[in-house]
């Protein structure tokens, strides 16, 4: 699946998007996999209260099922307008 990062999450991880091969069942499982990769991922996902997630472009919870999802995006709370 495609994993997308925005704002400071993108800056901390260093890339805007990447293809991730995973068997993670939930968003939280995916976060644990990413955290275990490298320090920059651990840093980006250190405080989940500062993060939001969208699965296939709908904002959802960290325990959401991601089986069959095409696009997972991580970002801080929105600040448009």
């Amino acid at each position: 699946m495609q994993v997308l990062y925005f704002a400071w999450v993108r800056e901390r991880i260093g890339i805007p998007r990447e293809e991730v091969e995973t068997s993670a069942k939930t968003v939280m499982d995916l976060i644990e996999e990413l955290r275990a990769r490298e320090e920059r991922y651990a840093a980006a996902f250190a405080d989940l209260r500062a993060l939001k997630v969208a699965v296939d472009q709908d904002v959802t919870d960290f325990d959401a099922d991601i089986t069959g999802a095409r696009e997972i995006a991580f970002f801080p709370p929105m600040t448009g307008g």
Partner: peptide, 14 residues
Amino acid sequence: IMDYLKTRAPFWKK
């Protein structure tokens, strides 16, 4: 619309 846009539309300001 503005209140919802602020919290639900995926924009980030730097």
